[in-house]
Design a protein around this nucleic acid. Sequence first.
DNA 1: CTTTGGACCTGAACCGGTTTATATTGTCTG
DNA 2: CAGACAATATAAACCGGTTCAGGTCCAAAG
Lengths: 371, 371
Amino acid sequence: MVTTPTTITDVARVAGVSKAAVSFALNGRPGVAADTRERILAVARDLGWTPSLRGRSLSVSRALAVGLVIARTPETLGADPFFGAFISGSETVLSERGYALMLQVVSDEASEHESYRRLAANGRVDGVFLTDMRVDDLRPQLLADLALPTVVIGPAPAGGPWSAVGIDDQPGIVAAVEHLVALGHRNIAHVSGPTEFVHSVSRRDAWAVAISEAGLLPGPCIAADFSAQDGANATSALLDLAEPPTAIVYANDLMAIAGMSTAIGRGVEVPAQLSITGFDDAPLSAHLQPALTTVRTDVVGWGRAAAIQLLALIDQVAGPEIDLPAPEFVIRASTAPPGHPGDPGDPGHPGHGAPSKERRGSASILHRKKS
Amino acid sequence: MVTTPTTITDVARVAGVSKAAVSFALNGRPGVAADTRERILAVARDLGWTPSLRGRSLSVSRALAVGLVIARTPETLGADPFFGAFISGSETVLSERGYALMLQVVSDEASEHESYRRLAANGRVDGVFLTDMRVDDLRPQLLADLALPTVVIGPAPAGGPWSAVGIDDQPGIVAAVEHLVALGHRNIAHVSGPTEFVHSVSRRDAWAVAISEAGLLPGPCIAADFSAQDGANATSALLDLAEPPTAIVYANDLMAIAGMSTAIGRGVEVPAQLSITGFDDAPLSAHLQPALTTVRTDVVGWGRAAAIQLLALIDQVAGPEIDLPAPEFVIRASTAPPGHPGDPGDPGHPGHGAPSKERRGSASILHRKKS
DNA sequence: CTTTGGACCTGAACCGGTTTATATTGTCTG
DNA sequence: CAGACAATATAAACCGGTTCAGGTCCAAAG
């Protein structure tokens, strides 16, 4: 018995009414008596009928789907915990409203634009998310030209009425710097992401400002590409300096972890001789040796908020003001007071890069803005 | 100037032909003279017309999209390099054929089934990928009932004419075990994934068989859940044994890395006292201290192959036989001959968990089946 | 010169819904 | 009791394509 697809006509015939009545009944519109509505819905249920999205989307001129185009290589995509969480979050909202997510992964910027054009021309989506914003990004304008509702994930770009929903990542970086300063560090370096990305610049600026506000001079800053390889390279470069930093603030966890390993590989003890902070709180970060002090953002909630915003934009409704929780700064074991190499300091530490359980146990979590 | 959507009727009017002629011309069907075709296409180009997918998909009863439903928590999703790579690979094939990928992320198995039902009922997709196969998985049957073409990612499940495309992961595990045996290990443990997944079982079996074939007795085996936390726990349990293993084969990199950190945190030197192998070759794995010996599979190519297979299935065409490259076993620095704790062995190693550059430099890569 | 056949093209039906304009009720008012 | 009106239901148009059953026209065959 092959399942013949049931259509609205079948339901109408069985219920003894017109197609229009079925449509009205289903969509809760007036013009159909209560008992008739009941009967129609009962028939629909019996027949297991769900309105075809194809027919529906043609007549309402809606795709009932939104798009997310990611311009990343498979490696950077796989290493970044962001997208999985973001998609999970947005899905909860989208599926509830009958929307679906179209995902496109492209390699370069040109095919990204092409991707958007196609999505728009085909009418495959009613709106899109825009991630990885670059400074002087051309995509908002492109999407405005294509008349495709867009929600920017991150800080709103200047020069336009763009809709954006973002978690301000600066407080997280500021907290990291303040934490390091409080521990006694005076030479705090930064390994940033590519300066073409606004979130790279934002984090770098937060680092610089926080250091200045502490009355210190900014340490060295190296732009990397968020990859493990580049994080390792940047770390080597920093440690090769005449006056190597005693602490490094990384723009993401992946680089921080690679950097930490590089340092350890060079015989630099972490955190005894070098403190390290990351950003993202990757699933692995809590389970490293030493566990990584980092910044955690509620990406799932972020995805949820972005989806709500996008659907509101599509419906031409004023979106609700959504308050996203500020990033949490999570203190673990990769940060400690600076120690001079060969210093007898750091007693109770059984040498040799294997911190005692006491140290690990002492890691605490500081919830910012959460009580 | 708002872009009024151009329709096939506009093109027909301007070109002075019927809608049918435009459709024929566009789809390269016979029944339209060469010069007429040219003229129609020229008009279409001038007007910037792309056929609407909504109209098209309604009339051809095709969604021109395929689905991927992932039942994972945001954390496990973010930590797994698989999906990013798989999606990248499949996208290259799909977009070329005008198909798009609908992604759904759900939390539990029940909503996963619900998800498939909805995709099918709505006619949103023409076929789906099925990942994370479980033993006695109910989904193939469900999808068969829904008449939704399906390609299983991984080994074909028994009891049905299911279409599957998978990379056999056993050779990778076997290579790992053989490598460890060759190094002199006699007590080789395994930390597997949940035994409900076929790939967990497959890797566990490969481990057991390879050990038996080496004439050894299988070491202890602990089932974990692929997460860092569980990897760490399992490792602690193994190291607490009366006769702790000298080597551990992990079912994925995430657990291996967490396990390695746990060992180091307990003062167990890796690889001097404990050898470790992973599976996946996560972007981070090459940049750890020590760098992780692991198994790499061409997931991007896998995604490409799966997409080709699925499109063939949808078109009711015999899919081409696709040969996927066997997994590569990548030897890095986390494996070494077993050393007895307190043994004077392993000279040239400057103690204390900081292997020399020489050791790291000696890591080599073994390409299986690649010359 | 008529018939046949093929190449080219068109009108109309169709996919499965939504929506508008209209018809058919029954009830209430004057 | 006629007329107005609201409530309910329906027929038909429409969204933007594809496709099939003809219809023209012209050249070749009989």
